[in-house]
């Protein structure tokens, strides 16, 4: 049951066995909980209900997290204590600085562009006849994997050498050729390649921004709009004075949410360039250092850095939420 299953029937059996085992554990918990009643029994029931979740989180999230922080102060083999040296490396090594620079590009560009496109599109298709279809088109990339998105865009960026009868098969290079230019090795040219990868993330996240912002736009009270209309406000000031202030708290949430997601982007970089040609980002570098370069200490430090960078964004997010609820 805990071995590697290799044929399909074996795999299905193993899955069913796992689900049964899980159901049995839950059954035992509910059975015991059912035997307690009254006010004092309530406490026991609560702790029983929380037991599986707390146990899993303690073993699977809290302990590993603390362990990684501890490990980040050790060398590549994880045997001798080296203090903050790994963090020093991240902020001084030439390759690591490129990684940091790229991560900054990603986190600054993606949220703003994706949110702007999402907002504009949400306004443009609002109340139109094809609203739900138009939204689905933009939103679909959100449902597919970053890996598949990477493959789709790698094909868009595909390059064929510029020789007599060789035709371009990638859309971007074909457009360049049609416009009279020479084809470019798009994914190798730095720093252009990092921005081309960022486009993929924008392509995915714009749908998210659009969905959330569209709901916020629809929630603006009718009387405000009506009043502004009677005042003869034009489209641009309607957008600036009414739409934008009304959805502003939502915009902040969308920006920060996309920012956090972007900080941890890994699959796109790995699928499209493997982090080569100076396109690596922190999340990708974490994987490379840990598994390919066998530097556990540096890998751990990169993971911790990711964690540390998320915290201020989350705090900002919660603060602005509080402020918008208070007003």
């Amino acid at each position: 049951m805990f071995n590697t299953a290799s044929t399909t029937p074996e795999k299905i059996l193993q899955m069913l066995a796992a689900l049964l085992l899980f159901a049995a554990v839950m059954g035992v918990i509910l059975f015991i909980a059912g035997r307690f009643g009254g006010k004092r029994g309530d406490k026991v029931v609560a702790y029983l209900y929380l037991l599986p979740a707390v146990l899993m989180l303690a073993v699977g999230l809290v302990y590993p997290g603390l362990r990684t922080i501890y490990q980040s102060f050790f060398d590549a083999a994880g045997s001798s204590f080296i203090g903050f040296d790994n963090y020093g490396t991240i902020f001084s090594d030439k390759d690591q600085l490129t990684v940091l620079r790229n991560t900054v590009f990603w986190v600054v560009v993606t949220p703003f562009v994706a949110t702007a496109i999402g907002l504009v599109y949400a306004i443009l298709v609002d109340k139109s006849r094809f609203e739900s279809f138009a939204k689905a088109l933009i939103f679909l990339p959100m449902s597919i994997s970053f890996v598949a998105a990477g493959v789709i865009w790698k094909f868009v960026y595909e390059y064929r050498p510029d020789q007599g009868n060789v035709k371009q098969i990638g859309l971007v290079n074909q457009l360049i050729v049609w416009l009279g230019g020479k084809p470019i090795q798009l994914l190798i040219e730095t720093p252009l390649n990092t921005f081309l990868l960022i486009i993929v993330m924008i392509w995915i996240q714009a749908g998210f921004a659009m969905t959330i912002l569209s709901a916020a736009i629809k929630a603006i009270p009718d009387d405000i709009i009506e009043a502004a209309r009677l005042d003869g406000v034009n489209a641009w000031s309607m957008f600036r004075k009414i739409t934008l202030p009304s959805v502003q708290p939502t915009v902040v949430v969308v920006l920060t949410t996309i920012g956090i997601g972007t900080l941890k982007v890994f699959d796109i970089v790995r699928t499209m360039t493997g982090g080569n040609f100076e396109t690596s980002v922190i999340a990708n570098e974490f994987y490379r250092q840990t598994f390919n370069a066998d530097n556990q200490g540096l890998g751990a430090a990169l993971a911790v850095l990711l964690f540390v960078l998320v915290i201020p964004i989350v705090i900002y997010n919660i603060r602005s939420l509080r402020r918008s609820e208070a007003s």
Binding site: D126, K127, A219, E226, R229, V253
Partner: peptide
């Protein structure tokens, strides 16, 4: 992540005007 988004989806029964609609 992890934070409630301050939006609600209103019922979409009556055809109503919206800022976006006007802007458009």
């Amino acid at each position: 992540m992890s934070t409630a988004t301050p939006v609600t989806t209103p019922p979409l029964k009556a055809e109503k005007i919206s800022t976006a609609g006007v802007a458009k």
